[in-house]
Design a protein around this nucleic acid. Structure first.
Lengths: 335, 335
DNA sequence: TTGAAAGCGGTACCAG
DNA sequence: CTGGTACCGCTTTCAA
């Protein structure tokens, strides 16, 4: 039914080896035979079978990507970075989400291994040690983005979460705020949530502001959570004048909550987000937030991984990208 | 280096056929040998080679997904639907974006065909006829979401764009608006952009409102475009009192533009979006918009395609999902 | 430059 | 229930 290389070889009156050559190393075939083979392929609309090819070459030119969820735009952005880099270097992408479940992450690794991807990118997933251990024993290339990895000699591309969080709090303080709350992602889910919290605490300590547990609320990353948490914070007997949110999604919820309660963000309440999603600039008020290089992290990561796969890179690479505090209008100057 | 089925067979002192059976049809192997084989696989951490398996079975249990761009959240949502359905039925997903470029779409089809995916989902891409023709000659299952297809007997899962657009305009009219503009997606890029425009015109005609070309601006789907277009509209000598946006992203930009110009959306200007992204509910004002079943469209589509792949479905399926106008506060009552 | 043939790692039919 | 063995479609020495 479907034409194979054998068919082409027969029809073009050459050997399979030659057909294979015109596909992989055309320069090693005479112009004349090459044209003939190409024409026969065309006429019979031959489609190369990458499965068979991959089986012989033991390389599939596909990467496996693991992200927590595709519906948080920041992961969409970094996925796009991975994708662009992969495409430009001739690799395809297998996509899987863990929804922050270590078990699903492990299953994906297993699956990717069976499908013989050339490498795996862990992009902001929980990073269960089981997955890493497993992949290590199999010896296939992998790389981590969004996080650093303890205890594993893993290549990674990340940014400084602690420093970025500090910068946010510093800014609040510089604007006269002292009662600063935080709506954080779940510590159990990601290392970066914890690190942002660490930055928050360190900055408070630096400015001599006592840390209060009641001002920190841990929630999953969703608009609804941000709204709920901010509502609780603002109804305290001594509500905060500023809220640092673990990401922009939470901040959107917080802005809505403030509006619900008649508080004016940017006037009598300060809010800072994290990620700088496209929509953050058109929020009302425009959201002051930490910009992270999502797309770049993805493309740098993918390129680095491909370098490893193709043995162009020998040592374990570690990149730390820069973040910026983007000043807009969601933080008022106090007093 | 890596252990193969042959190794396992030898170590477990059985034939390859038996090892294959414990993997694929364990019930056809005695408990005893099965355990033994399983143990040997475990001890040597054997990983099934899906490439080899796929080559023999001529089935890869992977689907190819083609979307315009992953950074528009609505595609992220529908991708998630595809993904969940695929995963639950044991399929993996190859992801590719066209960025609305027909050529890239064609390249992806070619690539997926080479990688021998079991089926392809076209999710909101331009749908170049070349791609469809090509895939047809190869006889591999495919399905289209977001759009219907003319001239091709293709299975699809979509919703009524014309009707939904009409509903938006009807609502504007019911709120006393007569001067209604539209910021539309590029007609050249997608059929649905054109259909929404069609619905807009039909509704105007229904209400006896003359159509004005100057009130319609075509733009690519981005916040910046929405902002720019709305700015132009609002600066007209006779500005519209209402703007129907081709999607929520454009609407966000339009809201920002209105704010820039001192117009109050929901008070002296009405805006309706399309998609109902998660953030739309927390915009200021909360955005009235057309809700489309993005995730459902993805999961229904993926399931239908898998049914076709597994021959559980014989005819060409056509689904039309429902949309809803979600009333929030971005449309004031006039006069 | 071109060809012959032994893999790559499974599947599945046919016997036993 | 289990084993033997031709494939699946392409790659890659090794010779010619």
């Amino acid at each position: 039914m479907t034409t194979t290389m054998t068919d082409i070889a027969r029809l073009a009156e050459v050997s399979m080896a030659t057909v294979s050559r015109v596909i992989n190393t055309p320069e090693r075939v005479t112009e004349k035979t090459r044209r003939r083979v190409l024409r026969v392929m065309e006429e019979n609309n031959y489609v190369y079978n990458a499965l068979a090819g991959g089986l012989s070459k033991s390389s599939t030119r596909t990467l496996g990507l693991i992200i927590p969820t595709i519906t948080n735009p920041i992961f969409a952005v970094s996925t796009r970075g991975v994708q662009k880099a992969a495409t430009s270097r001739g690799y395809s992408l297998l996509l899987g989400s863990t929804e922050y479940e270590p078990q699903l992450e492990f299953d994906l690794v297993r699956l990717y291994l069976e499908k013989r991807v050339d490498g795996i990118i862990f992009s902001g997933t929980p990073l269960d040690n089981r997955s890493l251990d497993y992949i290590k024993t199999r010896g296939i290339p992998y790389l981590v983005t969004w996080e650093t990895v303890d205890g594993h000699e893993a290549p990674y591309v990340t940014f400084n979460n602690v420093k970025a969080a500090k910068q946010a709090v510093d800014y609040f303080v510089s604007m006269g705020h002292r009662r600063i709350a935080m709506i954080s992602g779940l510590f159990a889910e990601t290392g970066r949530a914890r690190k942002r919290w660490q930055g928050y605490r360190e900055a408070l300590a630096y400015w001599g502001i006592p840390y209060e547990d009641s001002l920190v609320i841990q929630k999953d990353y969703s608009v609804a959570s941000g709204r709920e948490a901010a509502g609780r914070l603002l109804k305290m007997k001594q509500p905060p004048t500023a809220i640092f949110c673990g990401n922009d999604i939470l901040a959107y919820g917080a802005i809505a909550a403030a509006r619900d309660l008649g508080r004016q963000v940017g006037v009598d309440l300060g809010i800072i987000g994290f990620d700088d999603l496209e929509m953050s600039a058109v929020m009302n008020p425009p959201l002051t937030t930490i910009r992270i290089p999502g797309q770049k992290m993805g493309s740098v990561g993918a390129n680095a991984l491909i370098d490893i796969v193709e043995k162009k890179s020998l040592e374990t690479v570690h990149y730390e990208l820069e973040t910026d505090l983007i000043l807009r209008s969601s933080v008022p100057r106090l007093g």
